[in-house]
Computed example of a mutant assay.
Amino acid sequence: MKRTLTDEQIARAAAHALGPGAEVLSSRELAGGTFNSVHLLTLAPPHGERRTPVGGGGDPPAGGGPVVLKVAPPAGTPLMTYEHELMRTEAEFYRRASAVPGLPVPVVMAAGFDRSALDADYLLMTRLEGLPWSELRPGIDAEEQARLRTDLGRLLRGLHEVRGSSFGYPYGNPPAGGAASWRTAFEGMLADVCADARRFRPPLPVDPDEVLGLVRARGRLLDQVAVPSLVHFDLWEGNILLAERGGRLEITGILDGERSFWGDPLADLVSTALFDDITRDPAFLSGYRPAPLTPDERRRIAMYRAYLALIVLVEGVPRGHAPQARTPLTALATADLRAALDFLR
């Protein structure tokens, strides 16, 4: 699914985004990710017409320099139901999240959704300083790791204070988007993934309808969520940048908001403890909130763990991944799905 852009495609996207005077001096494809194409571009100092940024916080580079071009798969690519309009979702996430004090997200300098420049949607964004936390992790000692996890909890608490007007995916079809209640939205989101499982037929450890049945039988727990909060839902350490500032590592970037939705803020406690139990991370929880998680809250988190595990198990088929290469990831997702369902039962 992921493709490498040609120099001509990159130049065309830059001209569409920034005007005909845009000049790309160099480009380099960034590693990581299996869905979108991401390239780091070096631009010449601008001349001629420039377009206005459409999202994020701060200012785009005024004198040219490095920017990030992110391009979706081409039209006609097999997608899971929730994966439609992901670029619009990501741009909306950065726009809304940029209002959170101290939360570092890219500025969206330009977005192309009409596919007049490329055969897919794209975002042109400012580059944030730092390297993925997952890459730096081996060199981080336990004390510094705990401090960073506490900082992440504080940042996430601020993100969840951003509120929406309805539940579900920003551009999702009802009931998975634009829903009046979180129960309606989440059951719709889960039903879509179950339908995707029947469509793509990945090997699964359980019948997806059993997962849906367990959630519906416990729907009263979802009714406890009355206000839609902005949820990132992909905050594993590979999507968080760290850089050294003042002699210590700091969180300098929150990336890849394309899976974001309006819903229960506790859903973000799934990817922040990817394939694990967030209650085993007291440093994060101390930054996120002082009160311990209640039994009902832990059951809701189990629902969201099951949802994410199903996404991971299904998405390898439409993305064309070799099953053998995904064996470690599949094993982790399978174990987490079973653990979540055991907790719900």
Rank of each mutant, 00 (worst) to 15 (best):
A243Q: 00
H84C: 05
P203W: 10
S26R: 12
H47M: 14
D268Q: 01
G65R: 13
L285D: 08
C194H: 13
V68K: 04
R127G: 02
A44I: 04
A339F: 09
D192P: 04
L285P: 09
R137Q: 13
R183A: 15
G64S: 05
G320K: 02
E258H: 15
T4Q: 13
G48M: 08
A15Q: 11
S37Y: 03
T184C: 11
E143Q: 15
G19W: 09
L241T: 00
Y82C: 15
A283S: 09
L241P: 04
P73D: 05
N173Q: 13
G21S: 09
V68Y: 00
A120L: 12
R259S: 04
I10G: 09
P78S: 01
D234Y: 02
G257K: 14
P318M: 04
A11I: 00
Y122H: 08
D119E: 12
A117W: 08
E90V: 08
V24T: 06
V231T: 10
P66F: 04
F200S: 09
Y307D: 11
Q324N: 01
L274C: 06
E129L: 15
A306C: 10
A14L: 03
G247T: 14
S98W: 01
P202Y: 14
R3D: 12
D256G: 03
R300V: 08
P228T: 04
